[in-house]
């Protein structure tokens, strides 16, 4: 079975502040790391490979230094890695990112199953996985909380919904996004880290893609555009109420109604 896990390098911390006067971001330059949700996707891929055989590849898109997380994945047991990197891919929104990934995936090989983490900790949209599946024309199942088994070129998975769990039989090739806690991710192995430190990885830029039209990538390929950024208005309420019991009761009721805990 050919397994691909998509991973992303994210900032080590989300702690940013906006200067309320200048509107400039004050960034805390904490270390970059692998998106924590991707560890669950990697673990899922590794378990599938261990049980059913095959190869596990990882793919990421980002600046050249994002290669670090590919080597992290090698230390956990991944076999092959590819990095999509090009200045021209900068400023991509969800659509352009998904398109670029789908182009890179086509370059990288043919896969039976593509596994993504539920979401990233920086973008937090949970949209790239399903968009990639659409670009590749393969079925997708999000919020997978358990994998039952693989048989006859199908995978049987449990998808978590608001109140139900749907068991689905999905033909290969397909894409799934897995929930955190589907499996406990393993720690990287020092031995594997040593053994893979010089392993070659594939690098793709715009020139390697089938579609070389610049307009489909980066800023030009992004339908959404950020108009402005601003600090959130704190809505933290701290009120002290001293009143008759009857009025207090009414005020609690009104407040609960306002924050939609009662009709």
């Amino acid at each position: 079975m050919e397994i691909l896990v998509c991973i992303k390098q994210v900032p080590g911390s989300n702690k940013v502040e906006v200067d309320p006067v200048t509107g400039v971001l004050k960034r805390n330059s904490a270390d970059a790391k692998m998106n924590p949700y991707d560890l669950f996707a990697l673990e899922t891929g590794l378990r599938l490979r261990e049980k059913y055989g095959g190869n596990l590849s990882v793919l990421t898109m980002g600046p050249p230094q994002a290669a670090t997380i590919i080597y992290e994945a090698f230390a956990m047991g991944a076999d092959k890695g590819a990095l999509i990197t090009d200045r021209k891919f900068g400023g991509s929104d969800v659509l352009a990112t998904s398109y670029t990934l789908s182009q890179g995936i086509r370059n990288f090989g043919a896969f039976d199953i593509i596994i993504c983490g539920l979401q990233t900790t920086d973008g937090d949209t949970a949209q790239v996985g399903p968009e990639v599946s659409e670009m590749l024309g393969v079925p997708c199942v999000c919020n997978v909380r358990a994998i039952d088994k693989v048989e006859d070129n199908h995978i049987i998975v449990d998808m978590e919904m608001s109140e139900d769990i749907e068991r689905l039989k999905v033909p290969f090739p397909c894409l799934i996004t897995v929930q955190k806690d589907i499996y406990e991710p393993r720690l990287p192995s020092y031995k594997k880290q040593k053994a893979t430190a010089n392993r070659e990885i594939s690098r793709y830029s715009l020139n390697n893609m089938t579609d070389k039209n610049e307009k489909h990538y980066g800023l030009d390929g992004s339908p959404t555009c950020v108009q402005r950024i601003f600090p959130p208005i704190s809505n933290k309420i701290q009120e002290k109420w001293t009143d008759s019991s009857e009025n207090l009761s009414q005020r609690i009721y009104d407040a609960l109604k306002k924050i939609k805990f009662t009709a």
Binding site: N14, T224, P232
Partner: peptide, 14 residues
């Protein structure tokens, strides 16, 4: 909200 809610972003699809 962006960056874990530390910043708000105004977005258009023009």
């Amino acid at each position: 909200p962006a960056f874990g809610g530390n910043i708000m972003a105004e977005i258009l699809t023009p």
